[in-house]
Amino acid sequence: MIDLVNQINATHRELGTAGLSGGGAGRSLLLRRTYDAAVEDVWSACTTPERLARWLAPVSGDLRPGGHYQLEGNAGGSIQICVAPSLLRVTWSMGEGMATEVELRLAPSGDGTLLQLEHASPAEIVDEMVRQYGPGGTIGIGGGWDLALAGLLLHLSGAEYDPATWQDTAEAKAFAARSCAAWGAVVQAAWGTGDDDAAAAVAFATAHFS
């Protein structure tokens, strides 16, 4: 059985800047971790509809470069780049909101796979979110990706996992709280927030997943 809470330290997290494909300044969240699985297996899990449904969400659409996808109950967008088994870039939009971009990069690492996931948003989206909600909104986005990558770990490990119900379990909520705390430290270091501001942001983001 995987101790997911202890998996928090297996992920590197950082905030930075990014150049968006359409031009303009962007802000980004980056997650980096290694999986004990071959690159081809991780790529298949991240791009095959049948496998995506088992750890993230059912996906539909014209699943090819230039096509559009829709995750059930989640984001949708266009597929910008798909180079197996190393690079996938898509736009990522919730409803009618302005599109952000998600890039997935895979590379061999020893006997496993190094996964890097970068979520870049136009600077005005992030800045407005911070004005409205403080850094807690950014922490919540990072926490959401942590939960998704935990689901990928469960899937690759052969564990029984239902993404539609797992996030309501005590295990997932404990994981989300630890994730938000980890992102809180990243935000505090990057933006110079005080301890009280960081604690409030973590509480806000954790409540989003409870």
Rank of each mutant, 00 (worst) to 15 (best):
D196L: 07
G192N: 00
V102S: 06
G134E: 02
A148L: 09
H155P: 01
R89T: 13
E72Y: 04
T17W: 01
Q132H: 06
E72Q: 14
I8F: 02
V42Y: 03
G110W: 00
N6G: 05
G184V: 07
V102G: 13
I8T: 03
A174W: 11
V90L: 15
C82Y: 06
G158F: 11
A107C: 10
A190C: 05
T11V: 15
R178A: 15
F209L: 00
L149P: 01
I79R: 10
E118Y: 09
G66C: 09
T100A: 14
L88V: 14
G136K: 02
E14A: 08
L147H: 04
V5K: 06
D127N: 13
Q7V: 00
E128V: 06
T11P: 00
E103V: 15
T47K: 01
S210C: 05
I81E: 13
P85D: 08
E171R: 11
R54S: 01
N9F: 04
A37T: 07
S60G: 05
T138Y: 04
A10R: 12
S86R: 10
Q116V: 15
T48V: 09
A203C: 05
V102P: 13
A123G: 01
G97D: 10
A164I: 01
S86H: 06
L56S: 03
R54L: 07
T100F: 00
Q7H: 13
G97R: 14
P108M: 05
I2T: 08
A120Q: 09
Q70C: 11
K173A: 04
A170S: 10
Y35P: 06
A164D: 05
N9V: 11
A148H: 14
W191M: 12
L104P: 03
A120M: 07
V130T: 09
L31H: 12
P49L: 03
L30P: 00
V130S: 00
P163F: 06
C46T: 08
T48F: 05
D197Q: 15
C82A: 14
A10D: 12
V39A: 15
V130N: 02
A205T: 04
A150K: 02
L31W: 03
A200Q: 07
A170G: 09
Q116M: 12
V39C: 14
T100Q: 09
A107Q: 11
A148I: 03
L52T: 02
A198I: 00
G61Y: 11
N9R: 15
I8E: 03
T17R: 14
Y35I: 00
D111Y: 03
G151I: 08
G97L: 10
P122A: 12
Y161I: 01
